[in-house]
């Protein structure tokens, strides 16, 4: 009887297999998403909720602290993502062609700092950056160099947080680039060499274009993640000093959790979401091309 299942029955079974996942996603992703949209047009408080139209968006867009948070987030994302791609691609190129024991060891060493988590890593960096007792300033003192306050100085705090992101966490991208590099046929380089093409030109004309799908992937994932940076900011600076490290997600957390501004927090979150969607689609449309070899 069941050897040829009817399409209707087949579809019903499929929906049964999907049901648990779809119910959870509906309850904890779709519903909150819709509710956040509603809240962003409301003034929410325990005593009563009222519609305020675009007031929350107007307030968020006019708030200089929000401007600062978006500017900080853009700076963080631009440096961490492009710097990260440059570093991970360089490391992958240097590792490519080495023995598999070498590759495994170094992939592990580059991966570990991200594996231990943002909180652990931030707690260690707080200690290294500590103005008086920190290792960094101890080294600078031994070299008779000036010792900045790092996380307590509004000029050095954001660069310090960016540096910690750049130093740790390229393992995943290195692994992806190495996998992609091993897929490029050697014959391409052989014919290029026969034509007398130098290593630099080979990289820009052969390697880089063929790595494009990997670069696009690393770029999009990196941008989505970096736009939402929170853990390192929360632990290292709490957005300070003087909002110099206030990022968008930290600012939303602060607006919502500490100042109780539900509507504004939702409006700011939606603006962040819009930017992430726009940037992701833009990157995908301008950079993604099917590369086959």
């Amino acid at each position: 009887m069941s050897s040829v299942r009817l399409p209707m029955r087949r579809a019903a079974i499929a929906w049964l297999f999907l049901a648990p996942a779809l119910l959870i996603i509906a309850a904890f992703n779709l519903y909150p998403l819709a509710y956040a949209f509603v809240l962003s047009f409301q003034h929410y408080s325990i005593s009563g909720t009222s519609w305020v139209g675009l007031e929350n968006y107007r307030r968020v867009l006019a708030d200089p602290i929000v401007h600062r948070a978006f500017a900080n987030t853009l700076e963080y994302t631009a440096v961490v993502v492009t710097g990260g791609i440059a570093i991970s691609l360089s490391l992958a190129l240097l590792l490519h062609g080495r023995s598999s024991a070498w590759q495994t060891t170094f992939k592990a060493l580059y991966y570990l700092p991200a594996q231990i988590g943002a909180v652990v890593s931030a707690v260690i960096w707080v200690y290294i950056f500590a103005p008086v007792d920190g290792l960094l300033n101890h080294i600078l003192a031994a070299l008779h160099l000036p010792q900045p306050l790092w996380l307590a100085n509004s000029h050095t705090a954001l660069p310090a947080i960016i540096a910690t992101a750049l130093i740790g966490g390229h393992g995943a991208a290195v692994i992806l680039y190495l996998a992609a590099l091993s897929g490029i046929p050697q014959s391409y380089y052989e014919s290029a060499r026969l034509d007398g093409v130098g290593a630099w030109t080979q990289f820009w004309r052969i390697t880089f274009p063929l790595l494009r799908p990997t670069t696009v992937y690393v770029l999009i994932i990196g941008v989505i993640g970096s736009f939402q940076v929170f853990g390192s900011v929360y632990l290292m600076t709490q957005g300070g000093p003087q909002f110099s490290t206030d990022t968008v997600v930290y600012d939303i957390y602060d607006a919502f959790f500490k100042r109780g501004q539900v509507g504004s927090a939702c409006a700011e979150a939606f603006l962040l979401g819009l930017i992430i969607v726009a940037v992701s689609l833009l990157q995908y449309r301008t950079l993604a091309t099917d590369v086959e070899y």
């Binding site: 579809a11 992703n29 956040a36 939402q228 979150a269 939606f270 962040l272 979401g273 992430i276």
Partner: peptide, 26 residues
């Protein structure tokens, strides 16, 4: 095989772009 399979799948995938914080507040 079931109706709207691709549509449902792409709708789910598009959720990957929504920042976690948007859903956390509500």
């Amino acid at each position: 095989r079931f109706p709207h399979r691709e549509l449902v799948f792409w709708m789910l995938l598009s959720l990957l772009m929504v920042p976690e914080i948007v859903m956390l507040i509500p």
